[in-house]
Design a protein around this nucleic acid. Sequence first.
RNA 1: GGGCGAUUAGCUCAGUUGGUUAGAGCGCGUCGCUGAUAACGACGAGGUCGGUGGUUCAAAUCCACCAUCGCCCA
Length: 1096
Amino acid sequence: MFKEVGKASFPGLEQAVIEFWKEHDIFRKSLHKEAPQGNYVFYEGPPTANGQPGVHHVISRAFKDLFPRYKTMQGYRVGRKGGWDTHGLPVELEIEKKLGFSGKKDIEDFGIAEFNKLAKESAFEYIQEWNDMTERIGFWLDLDKPYITYENSYIESCWWVMKSLWDRDLLFEYYKVTMHCPRCNTSLADHEVSLGFEDDVDDPSVWPKFPAYKDKLVQLGLLDAADTRKVYVLAWTTTPWTLAANTALAVKAEASYSLLEAPAAYGQEVERHLYIMATELADSVFGEGQYQILKTVKGAALIGLSYEPILQGRAPAGEDLTKGFRIIADDFVSLDDGTGVVHIAPAYGDLEVGKQYDLPTLFSVDLAGEVYPEVMAPDSRETRGPYTGQFFKKADEAIAQDLMDRGLLYRETRVKHAYPFCWRCGTPLLYYAKSSWYIRTTAVKNKLLTNNQKINWYPEHIKNGRFGKWLENNVDWALSRERYWGAPLPIWVSEDGQEQLCVGSVSELEELTGRDLSKLELHRPYVDEISFVKDGKTFKRLPYTVDVWFESGSMPYAQWHYPFEHKAELKHNFPADFICEALDQTRGWFYSLHALATLLTDSGDAATKRPAGALNDISQDSSAFKNVICLGLIVDEKSEKMSKSKGNVVDPWTVLDNQGADALRWYLYSSSPPESSKRFSQNLVEETLRDFFMTLWNSYSFFVLYANLDKPDLSKDVPVAERPEIDRWLVAKVHALTRDVSNCLDNYDPTGASRAIRDFVVDELSNWYVRRNRRRFWKSESDSDKLAAYSTLYEALVTLSKLMAPMAPFVSEHLYQNLVRQLDSTAPESVHLAAWPQYEEVLIDEDLLRDMNALIRIVELGRGARAASKVKTRQPLPEVLVRVRNEAELQGLKHLENQLLEELNVKAVRYLDVTADFVDYTVKPNLPLVGKRLGKLIPELKRRLAELDGKEITRNIREGKDTVIELLGEAHSFEPEAFLIDAKSPEGYAALEERGYLAALNTQLSPELIREGLARDVIRLVQNARKNAGLEVSDTINLGLEAGGELKAALDVFGETIQTEVLAKQLSFTGLTSADYQEEGEVEGQMLRISLSKAA
RNA sequence: GGGCGAUUAGCUCAGUUGGUUAGAGCGCGUCGCUGAUAACGACGAGGUCGGUGGUUCAAAUCCACCAUCGCCCA
């Protein structure tokens, strides 16, 4: 019938299931099975396979797998194209490390072609490990035809995206400040910068004096028109070399600034100058009493004040210098140190400010950190400045000295502060504005925000929190990178720099060049070599690659090589219904997907004449995804971040090999909500295994064990209505569970779903239903009651296998194969091809559920009372007194009386009326009900209730009458529901009482009951003897029992019961002559000799 | 420095719109039960609900500030 169920070995079982799936091509079949509900779209966020997969990858894959499986069972088609991110800096760094390189120069000397070849190879260095892990944890993903970001087709789609943005004037060139190492001549990525920060770096600290034009000062009434003295705006900087790049000074609008008179230079006692600076900082600059304040205004008043540059810089061609050298006001200005006037040099760090206030950009040093010849005093007549070619740090000193000599420095000293150095060569880094390409995301900022409102974020707070805030502060997306291994930026520029052209496809490039480029690899350096002549000018490609986030964000289109191929696919697979990645993707993949989708589906803007996006015909103003789960990060048992350097990384394989993938997945789903950081250790997974999987396994193996003995005809369905109450209860629970799990999963709540299943399996199925009903399965008569029990348990297990399938795909497959496919070869071949269970509301019998709840409460209390009475459960007791909270529960409990008698091993139940006089009561106010009404009178009511006789109120309640209580001289009327009653334990009973429930045991024993208790002990000893004799559960025996005194008397009375319980065909009260097995035991101090042999 | 989140028993976590005695599982101790169970049941120890202040008849829950941790940004 069913395959025998042995001891659980989940890792072994899982391997077998993997083989089964492979052999029968189940995943493929799940992709092609009928899908009446249509498509459910999942996007795989591509990982990089250039390193070992770790636990954090297992997590995201476990969550990614769940919903596609669920939706497949619900009748959706869920394509799951795998994808690999192959480009980018991490890959390059890995190669550099292998080759012992330290920067771009090494790469270029080595050769970009060769370098990229190595990068390409390394992109899949660990592909086998990734595929193994993916298969082992049961992540179903189409890995046969994945999208790969380095493939020409993928890159060509990226080009198409860029071209479509270019056509709408959404790609543009501007400066970008990067951390630049002048020695390595390369920009450093953020993480590289943070590697080389040093505290306590000794640097100059200078107070430059910018001569102000007086007209505005006069206008403001700060200065008399007749006053001929010069006025200086006093600033402060630690980088004198950037003074030649100064184009503005910034103040704080709401702070006070003063015109004051102070020494012309530090330590100077004779000559005095006029300065403008923040009032409150004058003390710290000049010293108390060393200056006189003449006038004070708000910073805002100074806006627009012009001043003279004190050092000339190099202006790029066409730069409009008339826009510079003025005072601006912004909130970033701090009054913590300096003068409250901030020197702004857009090229060397203040680019955003420069852009915001439309300032010109000047340069003082080149990319090697050497000072340009243009840097000199503005009135100098030289052709080359005195610092030409000097390293910027070295030039600092000379510049400061010259300014001092020219009277344009108040003071020069040294300061220690933090400054970044190149982690490779130790050279001080430059903030340097380089030319860069941007996507004008700010043009669609409002749409980014409104489209975000359409996304369901899990957890919800990300929507208007982290992600929403990020969108509100949106700046244009810096697209270009000066790197090697990445999709090339398809922009060609004419020799004279006057014309630029974006290429959107290979065929377009073929047209321009007149060459067959079908064999061209769309990577550097091959693409760099492609040039063409147009209108008499030669065009060359700008040697940039693009941000890898642009590539992965283009994945909805590029995975299909859109629009060059599979045009229809995009229509049916955009946007995604579901994506899922770790929280750190907020500004990574989540953003790039969202931004590109918003740009491409943009319906345009009439006011700014922005045309509609290229995908506006497929979708209008849409994000790329509808539902997204953000996963927390993985930490170790001590809540510390896992990292190789700490050595606390848990290898997923340890857990996979010992506890198995299902246990690991289940732990991840159920331990905490997806967004919480997950503590992770083998112990915690082991706990999940024991608590949940072992319990499930035991119920399952119990069923199979007895079903194989009894061979019930499970095709004969006992109508639910005809089954005993306990069965109908379990049926109701199963349907309620189906409803709850479906609801949870519909709301992307795997934690709720898995916890509901766990509670059902452990508390309801195993520890209540199976335990309570064991005997129904042993009984040998094949009556309808037994069949009802088998059907009920069978249906529960089968439904469970389906409900668990999305989360624990292996064990559910195993259950399904043995329970369903063994019986019915026409059933779907795999649980993952089966339909998701439907629940029937009518079968969720709420009354029955409530009654059983009351029973369970009473049983719990009864067991407690038992323990307190010190009378063991084997000893039957004459009576239990029971009180429940209301009439409905009382009636319900009466239905379930047999359960109560058996469970507590008592002979009779006496139901106490809800307000029986037998016990005393305490009456409490029902606070949620009367609290709001009474307000401050609550303490008084509590006090009065303690004084009053509970009996009177309970009588009113029983009769449905209101109770009138006087509170602080005013009569208040209370309806029956306004009170809660607790019964006190009656005297002379072993009783427990809690929240309206009471169970009290009568512990008086009659000789008859004592004998019955003894008989139960005998049964237990015989059962042990059977076990010791090595008999099977179903074996029948011949039994001899020898005893004397009271024990013999018990045997006489209960012999037949004993015989039935232990499956004895014959029972004699003398020793068996030819016993297979003998043993002696003791019951309540009396000897019992057991001899038994297996019956024929 | 800014934003977002977290903090409840030794550990992992629940705790509805504020409302009766803050719960569960694991672990620990005692006792009990056992022919499905590597189980199960009862009881016990273990909690200043991160801290301080506030609102309220009533705060783990609402507000303010602070602390610690995490992520992101500067």
